[in-house]
Design a protein around this nucleic acid. Sequence first.
DNA 1: CCGACTTTGTGAATCTGTGCACAAAGGCGT
DNA 2: ACGCCTTTGTGCACAGATTCACAAAGTCGG
Lengths: 265, 265
Amino acid sequence: MQSNVLPPDAGHEPGNGEQMLPANGEQLNGEQLNGEHVNGGHAIGIPEATIARLPVYLRALYGLAERGVSTVASEELAAAAGVNSAKLRKDLSHLGSYGIRGVGYDVDYLVYQVSRRLGLTQDWPVLIVGAGNLGRALANYGGFVSRGFRISAMLDSDPAIVGSRIAKLTVQHVDELEAVVARHKVAIGVIATPAGTAQAVCDRLVSAGVTSVLNFAPLVLSVPEGVDVRKVDLSIELQILAFHAQRRSVGARAVNGHLAQAAEA
Amino acid sequence: MQSNVLPPDAGHEPGNGEQMLPANGEQLNGEQLNGEHVNGGHAIGIPEATIARLPVYLRALYGLAERGVSTVASEELAAAAGVNSAKLRKDLSHLGSYGIRGVGYDVDYLVYQVSRRLGLTQDWPVLIVGAGNLGRALANYGGFVSRGFRISAMLDSDPAIVGSRIAKLTVQHVDELEAVVARHKVAIGVIATPAGTAQAVCDRLVSAGVTSVLNFAPLVLSVPEGVDVRKVDLSIELQILAFHAQRRSVGARAVNGHLAQAAEA
DNA sequence: CCGACTTTGTGAATCTGTGCACAAAGGCGT
DNA sequence: ACGCCTTTGTGCACAGATTCACAAAGTCGG
């Protein structure tokens, strides 16, 4: 399976342009009809759904690379990522044409391409606000510390926590927020505080110049235009599980039913 | 705004049937062409996208209820949940017709209906495996402990952690897994272990009879048919943020375009 | 050097989700 | 009591995502 048929450096890369618009024949006229969201322009060149899956592929690719696999076919990679192989290929095609027909994809090369497109070939300085259990978990979570992100600092307001060391960092007081953002040129702020203080922290992050915020607190933050907020709710998936579990136990047969099409009354 | 115009107990509820198939005229014949996923049948009656938003609405509703709001219009609730109001109304319409035209929705009543449909009117016994920072964070996370879920036990393999108390629970050794599942009739297993041991833990959960698994470990679990696995990757959203941030800094001018939309002042 | 075989990349068809816009419903003021 | 005004519920059209299925491209054995 690892026949190593690829040229050592995969000569397909122009090496200069980097941008290299996709070689596919699509017209990608999406320019004028882009999906303006609240925050500002979202994906123009690459579908949002694809972007959301690229990290999954990346993770799968790292796993393969660690196991010494050098080449992978879309079928295998798709299985490792838990998606349909056609979807995988279409997703990757948005990045360019980096596969070799009859062979597959070079793992290292694809890691590089996906990383580059996600913007992970540079290091993003990340600030974590809230050094409770969640903040500590994040600081140690593989993928937060790994390639592409560097935790610049962790802040907390609790004097009992300030000064303690977490993942090689000393927790600083939240009063330092503005100074830390400026000093480390923080690009992404992570809010891991209780819900009560999240909006205030967010406001401070924004006025300090942070334009990307990852929110773990269970509330919807309001931010000015131009700031990109994403929310992770640890319990949403749990609730979705509950729904499906319930439906399995209740609805096994009840739901069915030919309830007539009754086009309209 | 809180004119309290509703009958105290919203006499619209039949009170018995509970199931009460949606009053809308849609044919919802989706039976034979449902979106079979890997895990098994997913939503048949309610779109998956809607299900994923119900927890968000629920959270917003709780927030309103705490602030003493008794009635809310779709516009307000949508704003609180961060979605479009038409989408909110359409989502809620899948549950039944629980609004009052000209007035809005009764907050408490809607909380009940959404909870019921999500399966949160019963208590789900949840087992958390892995009592590291993430496990501890989960045990304390509002929404995990709140209405609908009860943490039956926390397990870990580290002797230094076993025996410690977290959120009123004593951490037990992971060897107890099967016994705990049986004793508490655990329905949902949460995997908060390192990636290395996640698959083994998952296998044990499944053979102990757990059919719903929430996975926080950064790998794709493989499970037999009939088991529902959902995955939360704490770093995916971070990577998506990085993508957008990069696109903003790179494409600053490329996107340009006569930003004349200025919909309203 | 050629032909068989593998696997990519993508058109085309289908399915799912979104949002506008409006008729129907129902409370409220006079 | 009646009409006005607000807000729901939803038909419809469009936009986006998924999947199939296959031609094009490139490898590898003989």
